Simulated assay, not measured.
Amino acid sequence: MGVTMETLRSVRTAAVWPWISTLARLALAAVWLVAGGLKVGDLAASARAVHAYELMSYDTAEVVGAIQPFLEIALGLLLLIGLATRLTAAISAVLMVIFIAGITWAWAKGLQIDCGCFSDGGALAEGKEAAYGLDILRDLGFLALSGLLVWRPKTRFSVDGLLMGDAR
């Protein structure tokens, strides 16, 4: 029996996916680590950014704003080391959907705020316009990375790989 071209293509594809997933895992880890790292030093600003969406009371926004940076950093660290990749990616996907919904809400309400994803957030300075379309597109890209990792969580150089006996 000979090896068919389809079999060779299938083997090559199977070998490439862990590398693609590794790049997605590391990119998403960087996103969470940077986003959380920028917020963790000023939890009051994080609370103001959450409250700017006008979706919850200030007291609730204060709690969410205090938890969010630590959650983002935890997700980033888990993805960086590749532990519980599928679960972490699923949580990332849920958060991205929530963020996209929040940005869409702010846009629909006519609010002029910075999304607070990689900044202090809150009301924009006079004369500045929100870039909600770009924010949503960016978050859709992050959602796609999360989805890819939910679909194909096997990555290289991960704790998951060590635990499963595939440390490559």
Rank of each mutant, 00 (worst) to 15 (best):
C117V: 07
R156E: 14
R86N: 02
D120A: 12
A14T: 06
I20M: 08
L55W: 06
S21R: 00
G116T: 09
L163I: 14
G102R: 02
L71N: 02
I81K: 00
L140I: 12
L78Q: 10
W107D: 13
P69W: 07
S92T: 01
L145V: 02
L162K: 11
R86V: 01
A144C: 01
D120T: 12
K128G: 01
A144Q: 00
F142G: 02
V16D: 13
H51T: 06
L137W: 11
D59N: 12
L95Q: 13
L26I: 10
G127R: 01
W107T: 06
L23Q: 06
L149G: 07
A35T: 05
A35Q: 03
M96V: 00
E129P: 01
A125I: 04
V31W: 10
I73R: 04
T13E: 09
A93P: 07
I100D: 08
T85R: 04
M56P: 00
A131V: 08
A49C: 11
M96A: 04
G41E: 02
A29S: 15
L163G: 14
A123K: 12
K109F: 11
G65V: 05
G165P: 05
A130S: 10
S21V: 03
R25P: 08
A125R: 11
G121F: 00
L23C: 12
G121T: 00
A15H: 10
D120Q: 11
I98G: 10
G147Y: 01
V40I: 15
L163W: 11
A84C: 14
D59V: 09
D166N: 14
M1F: 08
L149V: 05
L143F: 10
A101M: 11
D139P: 07
M56Q: 02
F142T: 03
A89C: 04
A108E: 10
M164Y: 14
V3T: 11
P153L: 04
T13H: 05
A15W: 06
E62P: 10
E72Q: 12
I136A: 04
R152F: 14
V11F: 03
H51N: 13
G127N: 00
L75T: 08
L78H: 11
G116I: 03
E126R: 00
T60F: 13
L38Q: 15
A61M: 03
A52P: 06
D42T: 09
A49P: 11
S158L: 01
M56R: 02
G147W: 05
